[in-house]
Design a protein around this nucleic acid. Structure first.
Lengths: 157, 157
DNA sequence: TTGTTGGTTCAATAAATTATGAACTAAAAA
DNA sequence: TTTTTAGTTCATAATTTATTGAACCAACAA
């Protein structure tokens, strides 16, 4: 598990990017590590060591990532260690979650529209416009996802 | 500027939603306030008072929101006060920013692919797949935006 | 049964973020 | 000139978040 300087800076870059998307620092670094590490499956100790994290920080971050379906682990017969890896199949789900997030904000905008005074019609129209856009986007994203899948299938064929 | 309980809880809900998208607490409440307030243009003092914020917190949050293009203000002849309002025209730009964010993460994935060992071809393929998807999505979003605009135009016509 | 491995949990601390209030400023009004 | 308005700035306080190390535990091994 020797990390080169290149690896280390890339892990940090990914870490910062994910932090800005709302991930916790340690969790973000773990994801970065799993992207760059030569072995895509790492043990608790390897994570600790590679990221210079304490056992408790590692334990908390790994539990958090497992709970949030970002990671999974496998085990090997006669080996009590867990081998953690990115749940790569799951970024599709992540994407769906993001869409639901958009929809969630849109529900708030609907509530805004319900409670708004009718004395500001132009402003209300603008909010409706935003709401309509969010609605449109979240409605089209599943199709977009499907289109991509079809494209990939064609490339493979 | 009397806010009903309904208004207040809606502001808080919007506040929490935006906090989770990375906005600062005070800034998030100000955006919420501007969504629900009967007057879509509020002064510094009205913001202070409505949200029970100190002048410095208000000053900082407003400056921050102005800098980040979330708000703008207008002034009236013979009135030194600034009237702050949501830069509603700007959510399109926000959306574009989000896309660029995706593209940014994708650049990191490209760096990951460049530095990855060739001894894990399956894993590398999965990362390529994710990268391809992000690429596809960010490429299609402008068209999606355009489609929505056309749809709106047709509705208006 | 004693020790080791592979962790988890908890109390305390460190670090970062947010909010406050007091002092200040520049422009306009009295 | 003094006061008021409309804020800004700054040092500090409060709150939140993250990290640590020590203690603990369960399972297996010696």
């Amino acid at each position: 598990m020797e990390l080169t300087e290149k690896h280390k800076t890339l892990i940090e870059k990914i870490g910062v990017a994910l932090e800005q998307k709302g991930q916790r620092p340690a969790a973000a670094r773990i994801i970065g590590l799993l992207y760059v590490a030569d072995t895509p499956e790492l043990t608790f100790d390897e994570v600790c060591e590679a990221l210079l994290l304490s056992k408790s920080a590692t334990s908390n971050a790994l539990s958090f990532l497992l709970q949030n379906d970002m990671l999974e682990y496998i085990t090997h017969c006669g080996d009590r260690k867990r081998y953690f890896r990115l749940k790569m199949a799951n970024w599709q789900d992540e994407f769906v979650k993001q869409m639901q997030n958009i929809t969630g904000f849109n529900e708030l905008l609907q509530q805004v529209l319900e409670t708004r005074t009718s004395s500001t019609p132009e402003y209300n129209t603008k909010i409706k416009e935003l709401s309509s856009f969010l609605d449109y986007v979240s409605g089209r994203l599943p199709q977009l996802m499907q289109d991509w899948k079809n494209k990939e299938k064609n490339l493979a064929a």
